[in-house]
Design a protein around this nucleic acid. Structure first.
Lengths: 192, 192
DNA sequence: GTCTATAATACGATAGAC
DNA sequence: GTCTATCGTATTATAGAC
């Protein structure tokens, strides 16, 4: 069983993870985090020396859960097309959160890319993780040469649809967009 | 001629405009703005009561320059296809800035949409301005029914390409993406 | 290891002299 | 209108008692 210290640390990471998503990294204060995690004020510094450390821990945590999800999909879903469509499906399933707070990965990168290049480079790992997994599926589908480009195109489509759906608070646009992506994927699969 | 007061105010707006783009709204402090605009510290408050006022002035300024640009295009460019491709062209021309700071309109909306809904609604006007102009061009091209949806799709494509190009610092992706958009537009035009 | 108290700084904003 | 001085608060972070 996890020690009390480990459980407290995990509670801080979970709270920070949520807040960084809902408010953004820079607008989230340590006070916000300790309130949400119900940890005494100055105690935070026992677990994380700086706010940047906290963000890195959050990114690491997201990497782990994402890796788990992707390898789960790889085990339980047989064809590359179905796997790619499973990726599109979480976009559609996450509609309320996406309309409220945008893409957790995209909005974090956009925020940090402005003038926090080192942190942005850490956040970029999240994109790399998806990109490589998606490219693997495209390669298996029959596009080994174009796999990387196709994976980037798929992520670009997703990001664009999410931004516009959020700006206009339009769940229908998200729905039509994901359906259109699926049509594109099915055509790719058909003519592979 | 403009009074000294008006020139000072314009200098503040220009400085804020740049800084909000390069650092983001929330990470830009009044100190940053007065330093950049070379205005004495507390003087800012003579021109703008609050930071939110300053952002609204920046948005208004961007609206004006954008309106000017779009009506200029409408005067000087004859066909809807060429006008739409002119829109795509500024994306390509802005490659260095987009890789550095993202889309001025998109990144501002993404930042504010998290938990500053009123300011985000002001920033949304920038999207509306482009959206309506783009829809007008699609309508003239022969798609009056689908005009709004096509304009949203065009903006979504642009946003997605910019996000991915920035994440991967890849000007080539931006170039290939804009070319692909142009192919799409030319096909729409051909079969209108 | 846990927590309180508080330091040190940066922030948005104000008061009032000129 | 222009500027200096400064307020009150919130921020990240530390020192040190228990």
């Amino acid at each position: 069983m996890a020690t009390k210290s480990e459980r407290t640390q995990q509670r801080i990471i979970d709270a920070a993870n949520q807040l960084f998503y809902r408010k953004g990294y820079n607008r989230t204060s340590f006070t916000d985090v300790v309130d949400e995690a119900e940890v005494p004020r100055g105690n935070i510094y026992y677990y994380f020396k700086t706010k940047e450390d906290m963000l890195r821990a959050v990114i690491k945590h997201r990497m782990e859960t994402t890796r788990l999800m992707l390898s789960e999909w790889e085990k339980s879903i047989k064809t590359p097309l179905d796997r790619l469509e499973r990726f599109v499906q979480i976009m559609y399933d996450s509609t309320p959160a996406l309309l409220r707070s945008g893409c957790p990965m995209g909005s974090l990168n956009v925020e940090l890319a402005k003038d926090q290049p080192e942190l942005k480079n850490d956040a970029k790992q999240l994109f790399d993780l998806f990109q490589q997994w998606l490219a693997k599926q495209f390669a298996q589908m029959g596009y080994p040469e174009e796999a990387r480009e196709l994976s980037l195109e798929l992520m670009a489509r997703g990001q664009g649809i999410i931004v516009i759906a959020q700006v206009y608070q339009d769940p229908g646009f998200l729905e039509r967009g994901t359906k259109e992506i699926n049509r594109w994927l099915e055509n790719l699969d058909r003519y592979a």
